[in-house]
Design a protein around this nucleic acid. Structure first.
Lengths: 308, 308
DNA sequence: TCCAATTCTGTAACTTATCTACATCGACTT
DNA sequence: AAGTCGATGTAGATAAGTTACAGAATTGGA
């Protein structure tokens, strides 16, 4: 029959990151099941193509034990284990558990770092608060003036936001200097927007900026970790919470998420502006053309855009 | 037997993007097989949990036809189809072909942009030249002085490289101003390194910087599109070539790839430095601690740091 | 238009994989 | 020292996937 299994009895099981879930549940399993779990965590690439018999034999347990393990981690049947393992692997999370090690070769290092960036983006996709994002875009699109605040690593984000948002015609500023920032925040008016960046949400200067901006009647959009001082100091927070496990490489992966979020905001504003804004974007870009070197043949690669 | 046939049709199958591959091969299939392909493309989420019998019946063909379809698209057996479909779905690249449209809702826009960033990283992972990267790291790790050049969007990358690399103790500079850049490039000496960023590889100023740096005897590492003026102007190029299909949102996705590459370089240098360098990184980070707001309880949340 | 060669598709038998029911073992309780 | 409960294994039933072969459809030439 066309009867699709898909019965809804699964406890937990957030889509995608099964290996996380598995690592989490590992300790609640029986000894034999735990051995299976360890093998799956260690050899996901292999497991996703293994039959239950092969897995059982490799680990050294019986097939029903493997099946019990499967059920114990919240899956319906064995094929589902292969599926979830494969998906979890594909969505770029193989190394998120393990930090970069001194013993790692260069290819391993680069793989791990890229994977963790991909993971951060996957998390962003899943956790993005569309409602808050929509409101932030509403505010930003209409703002007569936008100030971007951020220090340290977040300064780059502020600069980037400036560069992306200034194209829409309204004044957007990012300040290099903390003192200048303070002066600027004092001159904000009602309707203006302060855009505050921080990875940790705990940077004193940036929190103070947010507060000052609010005192002046400006609205404050923060892009930072939820439930932090900065998140609370603004009107709208766009939460970015990549569970950064290493301390040393701290803002590495969350920075990618921040930057992508800026892209989303800028794109959404551009789309809202309609064709007119599109045209303006294009002409802004063309204004840079004399800084470029011309490509050898005057090619027009794709003819895929019939009308503007 | 474990003997894999690997019959006539292309094995191909670059990891991850099976549905792309499928769409591409669709036209070369027989009519019945094409119907199967269409169903798979249209209902991947369902297919990945379907038995061959269920799929055959739903599409209205026989089981062997499904199996022939599987082989025709380069897969060994039917379970592999489920696996690949699932992975392709999980790896989050459904929208990479389609540009953002004016009619898109906000969630669609954000999904598309995030997906294209993920795609850029996947491409980076696949195309990274470990040999060139290794040589670049060798050079950078020993350089008495590093200058980071980049204008426009690439300026952010230069700044970011500065921030990441300066932690290792040697002087690293990024310049805001093109004139300053030129002056600086003239003072480079043998052994110094110029790190040049550009998305297009066609920015005149940056190419000139690279040439000047070379004239001074410095080595030039470029991070840009391969086979471009800038790529040719340096000693080592770390190629970043995300086939950016939209023009308006130009440096969006490749920027993520650039930034991640900087992370990789910085991490690799840190690892090479061994424990001593690690310690220095940590203390550099701690030097910022009085700029932070403490978490609510006055004592340090984590007991993971026995000494200050 | 017809015939043969080729390609496409389905039927049925076979092999492999997954699941269930029941049996055994061993640790802990009483 | 026997009972109970949880963990594990054995064996057979059911479902899934694969192969061999034969019938149907298509194509290209005579």
């Amino acid at each position: 029959m066309t009867d699709i299994p898909l019965n809804g009895s699964e406890p937990a099981q957030r889509d995608g990151h099964f290996l996380d879930e598995l690592a989490y549940r590992r300790d609640g399993l029986s000894p034999s099941e735990r051995r299976v779990a360890d093998y799956v965590l260690g050899n996901p690439q292999t497991v996703m193509r293994m039959s239950i018999a092969a897995l059982a034999e490799t680990v050294g347990v019986s097939q029903p034990t493997v099946l019990r393990f499967v059920r114990a981690v919240g899956l319906r049947n064995y094929p589902e284990l292969k599926l979830q393992t494969g998906q979890s692997l594909a969505s770029g999370t193989p190394y998120i558990h393990s930090d970069v090690l001194s013993s790692d070769t260069l290819d391993r290092v680069s793989e791990k770092i890229i994977d963790s960036s991909i993971y951060a983006l996957t998390m962003l996709k899943r956790s993005i608060d569309l409602d808050a994002l929509g409101r932030a875009i509403d505010i930003l699109a209409d703002a007569p003036r936008i100030d971007c605040y951020g220090t340290g690593a977040a300064r780059m984000l502020a600069l980037e936001a400036q560069q992306k948002l200034m194209r829409f015609g309204n004044p957007v500023v990012a300040y290099d200097d903390t003192h200048l920032q303070r002066l600027a925040a004092a001159t904000l008016r009602e309707g203006d927007v302060a855009l505050c960046f921080s990875h940790t949400g705990m940077v004193r200067d940036t929190v103070i900026m947010a507060q000052k901006a609010r005192e002046c009647g400006a609205r404050v959009v923060t892009i930072t970790k939820p439930d932090t001082a900065l998140a609370r100091a603004g009107d709208i927070n766009l939460a970015i919470d990549t569970h950064e496990n290493t301390e040393i490489y701290a803002p590495m992966t969350s920075r990618v998420a921040h930057a992508t979020l800026i892209d989303i905001i800028a794109t959404a504003i551009a789309l809202r502006g309609g064709p007119a804004l599109f045209a303006r974007l294009r002409s802004a870009k063309d204004s840079l053309s004399d800084l470029r070197i011309l490509p050898e043949p005057p090619q027009s690669q794709r003819s895929r855009k019939p009308r503007a």
